[in-house]
Every structure is written in structure tokens, then in C-alpha cells.
């Protein structure tokens, strides 16, 4: 069932993010910035680029291995490629039929090139985004956002959301199981039942928010919430940041794949 799977995946990724490795210990600010720069570099390639993109795989592979993240945690998600990217990309081979290259005498049209370019960009950006959270706990990301001057109210919103996702998913999961236990085939999954189910979930949520508010008041809540500062920007963080960006820069400007190819051919 989809629900259970999503729920467990979420929990799995979350568990991984509390590991203690070199990349987990890096300041979240550096990781967020480097990741965003990485994505910008990747998607700045022209739409037919393939070979120039490949060296960029080094970064997600580094996060994966240095962060001691099991490959399957990320691989499954990436394989499950966003239907939208495929949906949009698949029109390219149909529409753009101009042959652009003919390696080893096999003609390849521009549409196929741009389709594969989309897929590779997709793999790079999606795996890196997932790895970012797998090597940085969500509270760490929130701390970074707050220190990068994101509005505090929004950071607190993210923290509360994160805290109650697991609680409400659990409630929702139990409700869905109860429904499916009595729904045969698609009967019982109709809109009417759904509206009732989700309304009850909504009421439970609002009541819970009220109780949480009471609990906050009980401990002297006066409208202020402090976001903890745990990380400190250190030498290692800077080294990691600078060397990563330098590497991206080199990859972007020199097609490493072509150089390797030239060397081999010689």
C-alpha cells in the first residue's frame, strides 16, 4: 500500500539524518548553499548536454558514501522518477527529430539527447536534494534557515510541522487501515467516505493544536520561541564549501568526459 510505504520511507530518511559522520557534522548552512550551487550549475547546462553532466555525479556519490547512506534509500526514490519530468521530456524525441550526433555511425536526434539530458539532470538534482536531508537533520536545516535570516515565524512553522507530521501520519494511517479493512475493492474509498474521514482527521488535528497550545501555556509560553543554535561555522566547513564549488566550476567549464575520451583515443 502506498501510504505505509511513503510513511516508512519518510521515517527511514529521517532516521538516517541523525547519524554521526563527517558530512552529518558539517554546518547545515554550508550544505544548503553548496547543494543549491550544485543544482544551479547542473541545470545551467544547455538542453543537449550529456557528457559534461556526468562528472557532477561525484557530489551525490560523495554525500552518499561519506554520509554512510545506504544506496537503496536514495536509489528507489530516484528510480521512481517524477512522472512529470518524463511526461514533459518524452515529447522531445517525438518533436525534435533533427539528428545532432552520430557516434559510431548511429544517428541520434536532438530530441533524444535533450530527453536524456533531462533525465540526467533529474537524477542529479533529485538525488542531491534527498541526500541533503539524509545527511542533515531537519532541525539542523531549520537552524540554518533561521541563521540565514529566514523569517522566524516560518522557521517555527517548519519545526512544528516536522514535529507533528509523524504524529498525524500515524493517526491518518490508523484511520486508513480501519477504512481499508472494511472497504472491499473500491467501495468505501469513494469521495463521500473520504470527506468524512478527512474531516474527522481535521477535527482531531484542530483539537490537538488546542491541547498543544495549552501545554505551551503551561510552560510559560508568551509568543516567543527560541530556535536552538548548535552548529558553528568551522574550518572544515569552509574547506568543504570552497573545494566543492571549485570542483563544480571546473566540471562546468571543462568537459572532463571529453578530456578523458581524448586521452583514451590517443
Amino acid at each position: 500500500m502506498r501510504f505505509d510505504e511513503e510513511f516508512f520511507n519518510l521515517g527511514y530518511l529521517d532516521t538516517l539524518s541523525y547519524k554521526d559522520t563527517f558530512v552529518h557534522r558539517l554546518d547545515p548552512r554550508i550544505k544548503i548553499i553548496v547543494t543549491l550551487i550544485f543544482i544551479l550549475f547542473v541545470i545551467s547546462f544547455n538542453k543537449y548536454e550529456i557528457s559534461g553532466l556526468l562528472p557532477f555525479l561525484l557530489f551525490p556519490v560523495f554525500l552518499l558514501t561519506a554520509g554512510n547512506i545506504p544506496l537503496k534509500a536514495i536509489f528507489k526514490k530516484v528510480l521512481f522518477i517524477s512522472p512529470f519530468a518524463i511526461f514533459i521530456g518524452i515529447f522531445n524525441p517525438i518533436i525534435d527529430r533533427q539528428v545532432l550526433i552520430a557516434p559510431f555511425g548511429i544517428p541520434v536526434s536532438g530530441g533524444w539527447l535533450s530527453f536524456f539530458s533531462i533525465i540526467i539532470k533529474f537524477i542529479l538534482t533529485v538525488s542531491t536534494a534527498l541526500l541533503l536531508i539524509a545527511v542533515t537533520s531537519f532541525p539542523g536545516i531549520c537552524e540554518a534557515l533561521s541563521r540565514m535570516k529566514m523569517p522566524k515565524l516560518f522557521v517555527i512553522q517548519l519545526l512544528f510541522l516536522y514535529r507533528y507530521i509523524f504524529v498525524l501520519l500515524d493517526v491518518a494511517l490508523r484511520m486508513v487501515r480501519a477504512r481499508d479493512a472494511r472497504a472491499f475493492g473500491n467501495k468505501g474509498k469513494d469521495i463521500k467516505t473520504f470527506i468524512r474521514l478527512i474531516s474527522v482527521l481535521l477535527i482531531k488535528s484542530i483539537d490537538r493544536a488546542e491541547r498543544v497550545y495549552q501545554a505551551m501555556l503551561a510552560r510559560g509560553f508568551n509568543g516567543e520561541i527560541k530556535v536552538l543554535k548548535k552548529y558553528k561555522l568551522g574550518f572544515t566547513d569552509l574547506i568543504f564549501g570552497i573545494s566543492s564549488v571549485l570542483l563544480f566550476y571546473i566540471f562546468r567549464n571543462y568537459n572532463i568526459s571529453n578530456y578523458f575520451g581524448e586521452i583514451i583515443k590517443r
Binding site: R163, V212, A215
Partner: peptide
């Protein structure tokens, strides 16, 4: 307890 513990850590 889930109502009482509302902070991230």
C-alpha cells in the same frame, strides 16, 4: 505525551 512534547528535540 505528543501534545506535551512539541519541540523538535
Amino acid at each position: 505525551t505528543d501534545d506535551q512534547l512539541f519541540m523538535p528535540t
